[in-house]
Design a protein around this nucleic acid. Structure first.
Length: 770
DNA sequence: GAGTTTGAAACT
DNA sequence: CAGTTTCAAACTC
């Protein structure tokens, strides 16, 4: 076994090789004091890579060739427990005694925390002051002479092996991209590695927050045991920890965090682990799964924003190949497990591609797990095959499409790649079919989703591609200028719904207050077909709709919100029949879905827009539960993604809030819909008179039905009671929306960048490093 | 798969 | 801001 050879090799020179990776990694970051900078420095990475490769190749006795396979195996060997018979951390742990090990583990955890932007001053100074890396670290981990540097470096690479060897980026850069210019390849390679590394740290960070302590974090950072990861999935999430990471500079980190809490991710990990090394490799590509869009963006972070189109194209190609490979792995090797469930994809975001989602992790390696699982939510689509990103990103993606996505995960790659007019239903992958818009207008679903079109799209003269990044950004700006909410989720949820209450009966219920942000304008469809955006979003029509003859089965505007809420709680037989037929279709398309609430959360959540997490969950969560955590994560990732999204755009459209409502039939999680933000805003903007009048409950704007399910806020009811006309509410909504002050910049990357830097600067100023 | 219907988006 | 046109998805056959 190639891996065994490598492992033995590492066994021969274990200590100095393994730890230096730490050192090197840390140093790389510490030198710049900023991850972004680190990522932005291709040469550092290249040096590392070269050194690593040199190290690998230097041991020709055991490893004949440092090709992908060997490299990957070697990495896996070093990191994976099944081959070593020890738990992951053992690799590095073997080098030290228990005390030193624990100490360093803690330190590393702190370091990771520091990187996350959540570090304390003392930690920071410790790490960046050079104590950790400069002396202590050398003493502990670098006993060998400087001549062993290559070995050390090589070892360091083994710490992040997945990234370099499995995840395909390296492979591409060295093999698949042979046709590309050396320079381009090098740069692309660097970027990928940097990103992957970033993700890795993000994973560690997330673990840190999710886990019980730094020790846990360190373990996760190091190629760890799967159980570690599992333990990271928190029954309870600390709001503080989450929010603390908010300032993490990459959506990758966010994604990681998010993924850390994703049960599906864990599940995926488990599943992957069952496949042994092979599974690991399968997960690797997920690292490259990052939504290309976000990829490009995040890559730009800390470095020049301008990315040569050539490089972008190259990256795109790599990305696609990665996606392709990943799809293969996911579909083929992780069967039965909706790997993408978490990943949604998803994006994003963050990749579930999305990240974005748009999600399996490495088998024997926590690193793997982390990297693969940490697919950014917002770019949430990261975890999702590239082809699926569009679907997940689409703001109004209905649950059926989500189901399709999950289903797609279980499909063969061939089917996955098929082009068809109606790809959504058949393949779960929304692809545009634009003919005249060149995919630069909101007509295009890809564009509307803030993602690039895929080769699998059937569009004609498509400009919505990385090659035309500038143009796309311009068009996005224009679109945004025309309508600031153009990329916002189309369906918003009322923030007053409490997850706790929603979950009261152990299942997610669609909130009665979910509404289309703008309202439909249907004339003939009676709002009972997917022409209607409300219907498509799985929400009832409201007074903001201008529809005629509304017969929206989810609720029509002629009935009051209060009545609607009641109807939700006690649907009539007729209504149930109508919705059942709709749900049947959904369920039929998604055989294995939503088997677990966690997965629901993850999936939905990662598709969920950001804001509400901050406004809703965080603020309201006195007792934080899983839902709250998910919400928060969603918010975080969303925010992150919004900042780092490829397009520089908010990526909440990546997390179609509409998805949530749609899932109601399958016990969707309404609370996770993005709309809380809007609803909050609306609520805030609601005149006190409206808020206070006709309030049947003494609980303020909230009231619960006897069975604890939420009903619409009285204010709305009172509002409606005041005027049967929709005009009042409509105008109210309009006012509110226009007044929305703080949407994350739906602006091009540059603006987001500025925001990032500002945050970074603030944070750094507070933490004192840089 | 072609053609029709529909309503959002874009334009005037 | 209303009316019209354009567009692509949804739908039908």
């Amino acid at each position: 076994m190639p891996g065994s050879d490598v492992y033995r090799q590492s066994d021969i020179q274990p200590k100095p090789q393994l730890m230096p990776c730490f050192q090197k990694e840390v140093q790389s970051y510490s030198s710049s004091g900023c991850i972004d900078e680190h990522l932005a420095d291709p040469f550092k990475e290249d040096n590392i890579m070269n050194s690593s490769m040199s190290s690998l190749t230097s041991h020709k006795e055991t490893t004949t060739k440092a090709d992908d396979t060997n490299a990957g195996n070697g990495k896996a060997t070093v990191l994976m427990s099944d081959q070593t018979g020890e738990e992951l951390p053992s690799v590095s742990m073997n080098v030290f005694d228990a005390t030193a090990r624990e100490k360093e583990t803690e330190r590393f955890g702190e370091f990771l925390q520091c990187l996350s932007g959540n570090v304390d001053d003392h930690v920071e100074s410790d790490i960046f002051g050079g104590t950790f890396f400069g002396e202590q670290h050398h003493e502990l981990f670098s006993p060998q002479a400087a001549g062993d540097q290559h070995d050390k470096l090589g070892a360091s690479f083994q710490i992040f092996p997945e990234f370099l060897q499995r995840d395909g980026a390296y492979k591409y850069s060295k093999e698949s991209l042979g046709s590309l210019s050396k320079e381009s390849v090098k740069e692309a390679d660097q970027r990928h590695r940097g990103i992957r590394r970033h993700l890795h740290f993000g994973a560690a960070i997330s673990c840190k927050h999710a886990g019980n302590g730094t020790h846990e974090t360190a373990n996760l950072c190091l190629p760890g045991r799967q159980t570690d990861f599992e333990s990271l999935v928190p029954p309870h999430v600390e709001t503080r920890g989450i929010s603390g990471i908010w300032q993490a500079r990459s959506c990758s980190q966010t994604a990681t965090l998010w993924s850390s809490f994703s049960p599906s991710a864990c599940e995926s990990v488990k599943s992957a682990q069952n496949y042994g090394n092979r599974a690991v490799s399968a997960c690797i590509p997920s690292g490259g799964d990052l939504h290309l869009n976000s990829f490009v963006r995040s890559e730009s972070v800390g470095s020049e924003f301008s990315t040569s189109k050539k490089l972008g194209s190259n990256l795109h190609q790599q990305e696609e190949k990665l996606m392709s490979d990943r799809d293969h792995y996911l579909c083929k090797e992780i069967d039965g497990i909706p790997v993408l469930s978490f990943l949604g994809e998803i994006y994003s975001h963050l990749g579930y591609e999305q990240q974005e989602s748009q999600a399996a992790a490495g088998a024997g390696s926590s690193s793997y797990q982390s990297s693969s699982i940490m697919q950014p939510p917002c770019d949430s689509l990261h975890l999702i095959p590239y082809e699926q990103q569009a679907s997940l990103c689409k703001g109004t993606m209905p649950s059926s499409e989500y189901a399709d996505i999950v289903e797609l995960n279980q499909m063969s790659p061939e089917r996955n790649r098929k082009k068809a007019k109606y790809t959504i239903k058949s393949e779960g992958c929304r692809r545009c079919n634009c003919k005249k818009s060149r995919c630069l207008k909101l007509y295009c679903e890809c564009f509307a989703a803030g993602i690039y079109c895929l080769d699998t799209c059937s569009c004609v003269n498509c400009i919505n591609k990385p090659e035309y990044e500038d143009t796309v950004l311009d068009m996005r700006q224009q679109t945004e200028a025309r309508n600031p909410l153009a990329f916002a989720p189309k369906v918003v949820n009322n923030a007053t719904n409490s997850p706790a209450n929603m979950m009261e009966e152990g299942k997610w219920m669609k909130t009665s207050s979910s509404r289309h942000k703008k309202g439909c304008n249907c004339k003939k469809s009676k709002c009972s077909k997917k022409y209607c955006e409300c219907f498509q979003g799985g929400v009832g029509c409201c007074n903001g709709c201008r529809c005629e003859g509304c017969y929206n089965p989810y609720g029509n505007k002629t009935e009051t919100s209060y009545r609607r809420a009641e109807r939700w709680n006690n649907p009539s037989r007729e209504q149930l029949d109508t919705l059942e037929s709709h749900n049947d279709c959904i369920k039929a398309e998604r055989p294995n879905q939503f088997s677990s609430t966690w997965e629901e959360l993850a999936d939905i959540g990662h598709l969920t827009p950001p804001s509400h997490c901050l406004l809703g969950a965080v603020a309201s969560s006195g007792s934080l539960n899983i839902r709250d955590c998910s919400k928060q994560f969603l918010g975080q990732s969303q925010q992150e993604s919004s900042v780092l999204s490829p397009s520089g755009y908010l990526n909440w459209h990546h997390s179609p809030s509409s998805l949530t409502p749609k899932l109601y039939g399958c016990e969707a999680l309404p609370e996770l819909s993005s709309d809380s933000f809007f609803c909050n805003m609306m609520e805030d903007a609601t005149p006190e008179t409206l808020k206070n009048t006709c309030t049947p409950s003494t609980e303020g704007v909230k009231s619960c039905s006897p069975n604890q399910k939420w009903v619409s806020p009285p204010k709305i009811r009172s509002h409606e009671l005041r005027s049967s006309s929709s005009q009042g509410l409509r105008s109210g909504c309009k006012f509110i929306l226009q007044d929305l002050p703080s949407f994350p910049p739906l602006t091009p990357y540059s603006k987001s960048q500025a925001a990032i830097h500002q945050n970074d600067g603030d944070h750094k100023a507070s933490t004192g490093y840089q």
